[in-house]
Every structure is written in C-alpha cells, then in structure tokens.
C-alpha cells in the first residue's frame, strides 16, 4: 500500500451505544485533501478518533504512517501523534497563555530544543497569518483567528497528515473561507488533510474527493458533487 492512511474493514462498537462505525475501508494518499461528511452521529468523530488512535477498532485494521492498530503498543501512541496534526471545532487553546505560548507548548512538550522553539513559533504564526498577534491572549482573538492558532499548533511537529474535526463549525462564512484557504495552502506544501464537515457547499465548491458516512457505514467515496446537491 502506498497510502499514508488506510482503513481495512474497520468496525468500532461501543458496549453501551452499539456500532458507531461499520466495515469501513478507504485509503488516503500522500498530499491528498479529503472531506469527511455525514449527519450528526454518523460516525465522523469516531472515525477521527480511530485515526488518531484515541480508540482502537473492534475489528479490522487502521494503518497510519506505518503504525498499525493491530500491533501498536500504547507507548508508541505519542510517536504517532507527533506525525499527526489535529484540530477541533472548539479550538482547545490554553486560555491562560499567549498565542505564541500556545504554539510553543506543543514544541516544548515533545522535546524540541529550547533554542529552536522561538524561531519555529515565529514561522508557524507567519504561515497562519498571525505574526502580529503573537503576544495576544486567545480571548482577544476572533473565532477564525483562534482556529488559526490551533492550526499553527497542529503543524508544530511537521505532520504528514492533518485531521480537522469540523474546524469551521463555530465560524461565520468569511472566517470559514479563510480557514479552508489556509488548509489548502498547508495541503499544497505536501501535508495530507482530512477535514470533517457538515458544510456541503464547501465540498461542492472545492471539487475534492469526499467520504460520506451514514449510521457508521461508508456510503460514498468519490468526487461526484452532484450527489450532494440533492441533499441540500
């Protein structure tokens, strides 16, 4: 297999709530940009958890960058996480620290040498367009800007894959366009992106490949946007 990420007949069942993901198979190639969509409770978040190894599949195999869910030890998970960038709808910033401290945090806790952290944080903030807000506190920023900080943090360890769980779910139209544009730029530099979203117009405009989940089953995997027009 050549994909950076591959799911093979993956099923995830929870003891209380039942099957969340059923028999899902797909792969993402290096440098691809893929959307993940489906109604609430269709299994998008479970799928992302499986990809970041926050959950293990009940059956089937998840393979991410050479790490396999069938053989990975818990102690290997940090190494895997350093190769992934993850962003969420609610940003998850540390509200008691500045923007630059938030980004630096990801580098500090993964053992980046202290003298390399400052320049790297500067580059990351420039990349997401927030160089001028380095010393601001998160609450002083707009939602779109906060998500940019979260993206800068996710990029800190140069991930090969960025997982974005509804990154524009809390943002207005304009901020959403800005974030998607930023994710495209990141993708253009070689990082694969898997972005979960409810926003079908986003997918249609992009023309990118998308995965559609419904009740845990992978309903569609392709680029045919006309299907989505019917949903709307």
């Amino acid at each position: 297999m050549s994909g950076v990420l591959r799911l093979d007949a993956v099923t995830k069942e929870y003891p209380r709530t039942g099957v969340a993901v059923r028999d899902v198979t797909f792969a993402i190639e290096k440098g691809e940009f893929v959307f993940l969509t489906g109604p609430s409770g269709s299994g998008k978040s479970t799928l992302l958890k499986l990809l970041s190894f926050a959950e293990r599949p009940t059956s089937g195999e998840v393979k991410v960058s050479g790490f396999s869910s069938t053989s990975l030890r818990s102690a290997d998970i940090p190494q895997l996480r350093r190769r992934l960038g993850i962003v969420f709808q609610d940003f998850r910033l540390l509200t008691d620290r500045t923007v630059e401290a938030n980004v630096a945090f990801a580098l500090e806790v993964t053992g980046t040498p202290a003298n390399a952290i400052g320049p790297k944080v500067g580059r990351l903030l420039t990349q997401v367009g927030l160089a001028s807000k380095a010393t601001a506190m998160p609450h002083e920023l707009s939602g779109g800007e906060q998500q940019r900080v979260a993206i800068a943090r996710a990029l800190a360890n140069d991930p090969f894959l960025l997982l974005a769980d509804e990154p524009t779910g809390n943002l207005d139209e304009r901020a959403t366009r800005g974030i998607v544009q930023l994710l495209r730029e990141i993708n253009a530099l070689g990082t694969a992106v898997l972005m979960a979203t409810h926003d079908l117009s986003l997918i249609m405009r992009s023309g990118y490949r998308y995965l559609e989940l419904e009740r845990g089953v992978l309903l569609y995997d392709g680029t045919d946007a006309s299907r989505l027009a019917r949903h709307q």
């Binding site: 190769r83 945090f105 993964t110």
Partner: peptide, 17 residues
Amino acid sequence: AREIEIMRLVGATDGFV
C-alpha cells in the same frame, strides 16, 4: 485537564505528562 489533553494530543509521552 485541558493542558494534559493537549499534551497528549500533540504527542507528549506519558512520563512527560
């Protein structure tokens, strides 16, 4: 809790946390 969550998210080891 929030910091710990982020530490794990970005790949800090258990020992480090």
